[in-house]
């Protein structure tokens, strides 16, 4: 996955970059399967296919060529800035890493309750469905509203005719 990400950033053809992003996405779906999350794996596979279709449709309507990279001091400044970001975040995250719970034994403060009494309270064996629709219904309602707003914005942006001024 990390190789796919590096490829997606570095390759100079945009179609190849999108395919490299596909490597990352399908690798993510495999990781979800290994991490015992079948719901996420199903959604991730289909979403990855659809997002590849969307970005490819946009590229086919425009141009598949990457922009020319400028040379000079500005370029070097950008690279150095990126590297500094990289190192600072990496070091600070390694410091933080000690505070996280050990891998493989999460702290089940809320979820312990959900696991223990989810079946009795909701009657749904799939605990993920029970959480997103019963315990945390407001969250899902908000997400559905965000999805609606995003689609309305997309239609407004892409509409063929605007109002004449």
């Amino acid at each position: 996955m990390i190789l796919g990400a590096i490829l997606a950033i570095w390759v100079s053809n945009l179609v190849a970059a999108v395919v490299s992003m596909g490597i990352v996405g399908f690798g993510l779906a495999l990781c979800f399967l290994f991490l015992e999350a079948p719901d996420l794996a199903i959604v991730q596979i289909v979403v990855e296919i659809l997002s590849l279709v969307i970005i490819l449709a946009a590229i086919m309507k425009t141009t598949p060529e990457d922009t020319k990279e400028a040379r000079g001091p500005l370029r070097m400044t950008m690279y150095i800035g990126g590297a500094v970001f990289f190192i600072i975040f990496l070091v600070s995250f390694i410091r933080i890493c000690g505070l996280l719970p050990e891998f493989g034994s999460p702290v089940l403060r809320m979820a312990g309750d959900y696991i223990g009494s989810g079946l009795q309270k909701t009657g749904a064996p799939n605990l993920v469905a029970a959480i997103i629709l019963n315990f945390r219904g407001y969250d899902t309602l908000g997400e559905a509203t965000v999805l609606f707003a995003a689609v309305v914005g997309l239609i407004v942006v892409l509409r063929k005719v605007g109002r004449k001024r």
């Binding site: 969307i54 449709a57 909701t122 629709l133 899902t140 559905a144 999805l147 609606f148 239609i155 892409l158």
Partner: peptide
């Protein structure tokens, strides 16, 4: 209880949304 009903609502909403996205693009 209401979980299957909410599932159907969400499925219709998400399916319609993504179809609209691809159609528009």
């Amino acid at each position: 209880g209401i979980i299957p009903l909410c599932n159907i609502g969400i499925a219709v909403e998400v399916g319609g949304a993504i179809s609209v996205i691809v159609l528009a693009l």
